[in-house]
Design a protein around this nucleic acid. Structure first.
Lengths: 224, 224
DNA sequence: CACGTAATCAAACGAACGTTTGAACCCCGG
DNA sequence: CCGGGGTTCAAACGTTCGTTTGATTACGTG
């Protein structure tokens, strides 16, 4: 009963469970995926999840964190590197956008597993499950704060509050773009090759996001 | 056992059930909301849902359709009216955006119930439940096709495929913007008054969407 | 006032859920 | 060869799920 083992030494069983869980979570959602589905798909005993992770909630968090932690670490590192290269000068907006969304989009393009995880992550943002929301707030909080300030320096004419909103919109467009390919198909009736779509998606989305980010400021009553 | 009654004459019990269900679905998701939660909140007997709607899935669809059908009808009518006024001239992009997203945003601003429904609708797009996906495809299909063509006429320089993608992005930004105010709070730590936020959201989002829609075209390898 | 239909009710249905148990198993150090 | 910790296993735990039942109440109609 280790149940909370540190970073190293994840057993083969744990890997198989997380892979199966990620795939099933992405396809059916968290609550609709039962322990029996997970363990059957993983080819392990039903009790294995509780033995190795402690509970279903803990498994959900483990699956999310497995790729989200390195992804956000990469985001921090990419921004560090960009700021180092700029040598004190304010970053260009498109560079910051690339730092934040580039990594995740590349991840979604690279492999079926990556695509699966990004689809899962997209679903995650509208997921009411407390365990999920706690995990998101904890993992994204520092990163978002860092990027918000970076954007604010890059676009000094845009009020900080507006930056936050546009970040929010960019999040939405991205998570939906990644997780909703099937929705796109359902709505438009167009057949899309998913791998091809994901590859083309990066430049398409980047262009869209930058256009939105740099749009003229709306005129809102100056109340706050 | 009417169970499939036509548009008129929804009983008080049915209304109370749909109101309670909508609120709970928006707060906890479809699967996490049990029949017992719904009927207790509505103050009706447990068997009432199955009696009046037939099943939980049918209730889900009834709750979605209740506001979605008139909303999409309004979208069609708004586009009709705009095209009538243009008298044959191609519509401006911002007019089409206003037609599509204006109604829903106004709905979200108008009442707590409207806000609730839009939040629910946002969740709906990433919902794997078959009943939900069937409902979305059916209700949105014609509307999306109509608007896609309108955008294509308004922006003749933009390939149809690119239009579809940008529509997709705009959907994502919007549904996320509406449904994820709490996510915004969780990620940024900023406290937001929801009613105020929803009111300001319309011009903010419109500006962002238009900026994205009119962004320079990405350069993608000409492979299809 | 009776009659019949629609609606509501308490109670129970079988199934599936997440979790726990205790025995069996594997493998390595003594 | 034996002993013990880490792991896997079948089985069952108690709970909750969506749904169904059959009796009971409310009510417009002849």
């Amino acid at each position: 009963m280790d149940m909370r083992r540190s970073s190293d030494s994840v057993s083969d069983t744990q890997l198989r469970i997380m892979d199966a869980a990620q795939s099933l979570f992405a396809a059916h959602g968290f609550e609709a995926t039962s322990m029996r589905m997970i363990t059957t798909t993983a080819g392990v005993n039903l009790a294995a999840v509780n033995y190795h992770f402690g509970s279903k909630d803990a498994l959900v968090q483990a699956v999310l964190r497995r790729h989200l932690v390195p992804l956000n670490a990469q985001r921090m590192a990419d921004l560090d590197e960009a700021e180092r290269r700029a040598a004190g000068a304010p970053l260009k907006a498109h560079v910051i956008v690339e730092c934040f969304f580039g990594g995740s989009l590349r991840m979604a393009s690279a492999s079926e597993q990556g695509r699966e995880f990004m689809r899962l992550l997209g679903r995650t943002f509208t997921e009411p499950l407390p365990a999920v929301r706690r995990c998101l707030a904890q993992e994204y909080g520092p990163v978002v704060a860092r990027y918000r300030d970076a954007f604010s320096r890059a676009l000094p004419a845009v009020p900080l509050q507006e930056i936050v909103w546009r970040l929010h919109f960019m999040f939405g467009a991205t998570s939906y773009a990644v997780s909703g390919i099937d929705t796109l198909q359902a709505l438009t009736g167009v057949e899309v090759d998913e791998a091809q779509a994901m590859r083309d998606l990066t430049p398409r989305l980047m262009s869209f996001l930058l256009g939105g980010l740099r749009a003229p400021l709306p005129d809102i009553g100056m109340t706050g």
